[in-house]
Design a binder for these strands. Sequence first.
DNA 1: GCTTGACTTCAAGTTAACTTGAACTTGTAT
DNA 2: ATACAAGTTCAAGTTAACTTGAAGTCAAGC
Lengths: 133, 133
Amino acid sequence: MDIAEVAKASGLPSSTLRFYEEKGLIRSVGRKGMRRLFNSDVLDRLALISLGRHAGFSLDEMGEMFTAEGTAINRTLLLEKAEELDKKIKELSTMRDGLRHAAACQAANHFECPKFLRLLRVAGKNRLRPSDK
Amino acid sequence: MDIAEVAKASGLPSSTLRFYEEKGLIRSVGRKGMRRLFNSDVLDRLALISLGRHAGFSLDEMGEMFTAEGTAINRTLLLEKAEELDKKIKELSTMRDGLRHAAACQAANHFECPKFLRLLRVAGKNRLRPSDK
DNA sequence: GCTTGACTTCAAGTTAACTTGAACTTGTAT
DNA sequence: ATACAAGTTCAAGTTAACTTGAAGTCAAGC
């Protein structure tokens, strides 16, 4: 597929695709004249990148998950990332609950609501516990 | 408290505290000479900001949640954010499951594992569904 | 009362993740 | 065969969220 097809199918502008290629996150399989050609499996890779980005990983971190031949690497790294995600999921749940409570709460100032403050402080502690670098 | 105490208690450098104040995210209650004085409740606010940032909200978005007097605003906005979080939590769960599976999976190339691909594609769809701007 | 370390302002620098612009080349439709 | 929409490179610009540096101010301990 040419870059425009990939752009359309992935929803990413071609400038981003070139940028990703330069960063080594995706690969084009050849050229037709000066134009890049992509294998359609690049779409899966882009999906993973997009998902990862959305999950809060940086492009460099996503890059670490790939090896030369497109395989995700190092099971330990994968499990670490999964652990990170688990932590983040817990934080988000706390935050969500806090927001829902704040929306329902009668206190004029949310910072005066003991329940809200408790959620806040518990969340903070959880985040700091494993040694906040 | 002076800025150094807030810095220590919050774990944030004072440059960040000044930056947050300039952005209107926190307020100092006065000056002693030229030095800022903070009320200790700024720590709760910083905790919320930190939590929110970690949850993927921008400083501007966090700012929107505050009104002049420190009260979080607009219940609708709060509920919207909670909804967003719920979505994100689902994504992260998918990603986490995908990573755990990838770590356990036998396939040489994760992109050849149907289960992994299925997770990936489902995750992508979920993210696009409510009209991907 | 003087030194000094912690504060202050303001401007400029930094990193990530792209985007945009200029100048150029080329596949494709006519 | 030619026009041109779409591709290419490379450098520079952009935004968020800070950080750093220069230059000055001051509260506190000696």
